[in-house]
Design a protein around this nucleic acid. Sequence first.
DNA 1: CGAGAGCTGTTCAAATTTGAACGGCAGGAG
DNA 2: CTCCTGCCGTTCAAATTTGAACAGCTCTCG
Lengths: 159, 159
Amino acid sequence: MDHTRWLDEEEMRAWLAFIPTATLVARELDQQLKEDMGLSHLQYEILVHLNAAENGALRMTALAERLINSKSGLTYQIGQMERDGLVRRRPCEWSKSGVLAEITDEGRAMLERAAPGHVEKVREVLIDVLTPDECKAIADGLGRVRDRIIERNDGGSCW
Amino acid sequence: MDHTRWLDEEEMRAWLAFIPTATLVARELDQQLKEDMGLSHLQYEILVHLNAAENGALRMTALAERLINSKSGLTYQIGQMERDGLVRRRPCEWSKSGVLAEITDEGRAMLERAAPGHVEKVREVLIDVLTPDECKAIADGLGRVRDRIIERNDGGSCW
DNA sequence: CGAGAGCTGTTCAAATTTGAACGGCAGGAG
DNA sequence: CTCCTGCCGTTCAAATTTGAACAGCTCTCG
């Protein structure tokens, strides 16, 4: 017997519009950032998260989780960005084994310069193409999808 | 002056629900396929596209475009899959410089075994979490986003 | 025919990512 | 205190991805 509930036409349309589109959009953003600023999208995101954090700093693991990135991958990228002066490593005060990644002034300046072009691109390829209704449906639906996956993985492990 | 049209709250919600969720979903699918079948998501997609093609075969470039992958990356993956017997290379009849990637019987068998678990996971993490309305909005909206990017890049280059 | 522009798929080195293994630290049970 | 389990960030080798460079082929214009 075949218990598999295959996707119907509408579901298939949604599926084929989801991952491929995300891949395309990510590629567009990556190119824009790389050409204009010499930053990868991941590096940009790192700056965004650090900049938004309490003291411009976050612990490595916390940052990796927010970025949906592996810890070792983050270690590598922070290394690159530290070399470029965008970020600095600092020991964590209350835990000898902890390390804080902290955004530098140069990092904040870079973010400030990069943000307008980035947001413009996000609008151009995604947001301005969507109707407000679609925008809301995506925020609600995909937000729920995201939260469920995160919640489900919380009881589990990391990477 | 600052002409930047920043994202309003709803747009930001959609943005923060899009790429991160796609990343998470892709990770889930990759894990499921790798654990259960030893296939990466990319390899699975290659099988899907070849299986759906006219004679179970596509030219390298055509396949790369559908997969949203670089040509060199595809060369590598086809190499891996050829080694594993899932795929075979065949010269293109009407063009000496062309190469066809063709799915093997073993490849079709693998796909048949992998598909149910894959679809089930797609439902579990994504489709079954969305309401029909959201599903439609995603299909319509993101489909439009995708088509615009593809169309815009057609006049341009490849990778 | 013959030069030239544009494809095709591959190659290569460099960059990045992955996942397991590791040494050091934290925190609770005995 | 001391062992033990678990977390932290890093390290490492292997896998993969990237992008430019390449050699061969195709097609068109002259």
